[in-house]
Design a binder for these strands. Sequence first.
DNA 1: TTGTATGCGTTATCAG
DNA 2: CTGATAACGCATACAA
Lengths: 333, 333
Amino acid sequence: MAPSRGGFERATIRRVAAVAGVSPSTVSRTFSHPHLLRPSTVERVSSVAAELGYVPDGSAQALTTGRRGVIGLVVPDIANAFFPPLIRAAQTAAERAGLSTIIGDGNEDGTKEAAMVSRLRGQTDGVILASSRAPEAVLRSLHEVTRLVLVNRDLAGVPRVLIDSAPGMRACVGLLAGLGHTRIAYVNGPATSWSNGERLAAIEDACREHDIVLTTLQARLPDHRGGRAAAAEVLELGVTAAIAFDDVLGQGLLAGLAERGVRVPEQFSLTACDDTVSATTYPPMTTVGCPVREAGEAAVELLVEALGGVDEERVRRLPADMVVRGTTGPVPA
Amino acid sequence: MAPSRGGFERATIRRVAAVAGVSPSTVSRTFSHPHLLRPSTVERVSSVAAELGYVPDGSAQALTTGRRGVIGLVVPDIANAFFPPLIRAAQTAAERAGLSTIIGDGNEDGTKEAAMVSRLRGQTDGVILASSRAPEAVLRSLHEVTRLVLVNRDLAGVPRVLIDSAPGMRACVGLLAGLGHTRIAYVNGPATSWSNGERLAAIEDACREHDIVLTTLQARLPDHRGGRAAAAEVLELGVTAAIAFDDVLGQGLLAGLAERGVRVPEQFSLTACDDTVSATTYPPMTTVGCPVREAGEAAVELLVEALGGVDEERVRRLPADMVVRGTTGPVPA
DNA sequence: TTGTATGCGTTATCAG
DNA sequence: CTGATAACGCATACAA
């Protein structure tokens, strides 16, 4: 077997030891427990290591310590604007804990997700599964064999981070009620989405409270085009305001309205959720600002705790609040 | 040392072997070279492995084979809309090659990037560095010690994928010229960006060719707000059209124009680059569609080649072409 | 404070 | 076709 596939002669702990005139264990300690060594030794070994371009081999470390120093983070779609900030925050938090992050794209497919998590078992210390599309039973069996943290999936017994968009959604309904709207529409997101269920429930509840007539509809697809196409339907409903499942759908809706010459917020009001693209639309959208960064950090924290042996169930709920911008106005006369 | 940190009893190849009544080697072969085994043996071992929830330990595999089955992908900012599609495509291509992908966020900082790549050396087989902000010398020394592929960085001697936005940019100028525009502005991107240099050069060239007077300016920051703020400056220039470095800047510009009551494309024309958010603005922007997905795939292919021992310099150039949408129109009378 | 010996889980070599 | 054995690079218990 050729150990150096392709030609790079990677420096090993032994080579460094030989050059520095110490034993391999001393080199090892230089990196993992320098306080056990005489400062001058650390100094000398470090400089030799740097000179030789030595970097500890993660695989070998993993084999002896049982910790790979890598976690997995699986999301349904990296390209969905909701996830990159979450990924970024998680990645930063992980790095702070000395962990690298392998990103998995589940391709909006629960089966694919489960397969990824399984494979990741052999390469990571644990995995975070965000907005999973997989059925409960699958998640449970995954949790049996892997250190697992869920984001936006409420499964008793599994550590999880939940973004609670209900307060924000209720606030949106309240805002619209205050502006005189009495008939509004909710444009649903994906049926398999836990968040969609939560949001819908909160809106229904708030509408009852404010005596608002709510009509719900489903966009053909929960994306920009779907939202754009849904504008026609929404207008036919005779409502004066709409709440979109998320920003992407909301932005589509906004474009669809503009396309039809409907001025927002003068003639129609609109709110969305997530605050992914709301700040960059014109007019900027009133939305619910989901704390995705905090969610990413919290998920890593929970996973790190679990890796450390904490076995109790941990749940972190993060409230999402309304952000008022320019798409909400008084009901037209 | 406690081998099973935290409580999970991971099945090893030996346990599977014992239960299946074969030798460890046979279990190993069941997964890596099943064709060397009698089908019935493969069958039996596989079922035992499945029962025990056995997954090969990547670290141990890495140690013997010299291949970790993991590559790194470092980008300046995961949350920048340009990268997620590239990441996604790269990740998919990598997976097809049996590789997992560790994502690194360089935080728009060349030094941070270099540190990430260094660290990744111990955990990956090679790394892809996209739109690096690091100076040439740093990249070269990184290339000395790591299998490295660059995206959008033209460094002789290092395998690289270059998205050539010049044709698209020239086409934009041509389009505007055909619509009667004779004075246009270019809003620059980051100074350290290789792409910005390429785009500017192409535009200058095309403007000369079409007898167009070009004014260039710099947004305070190359983001949405920067673009929005730049709208005022652009309007003062007395030009009838503008080309933005990228979509984000373009979208900001578009919002800034709307804010000032300037109708696009009736009173002012606008083009951008990247096609990240152009399709979702209102009106949808004319832009240059960068083949980021292809770039991600190509980068992985180059890296896989390098891992396979291909030592010759490989360069892949991908042309970006114009996508005409709704922000370009005839010069106002 | 440092060195020596052993084993982590797997694969490749070689023997059968 | 299958089994025994020796590494891979590192961290640790133990010895010095």
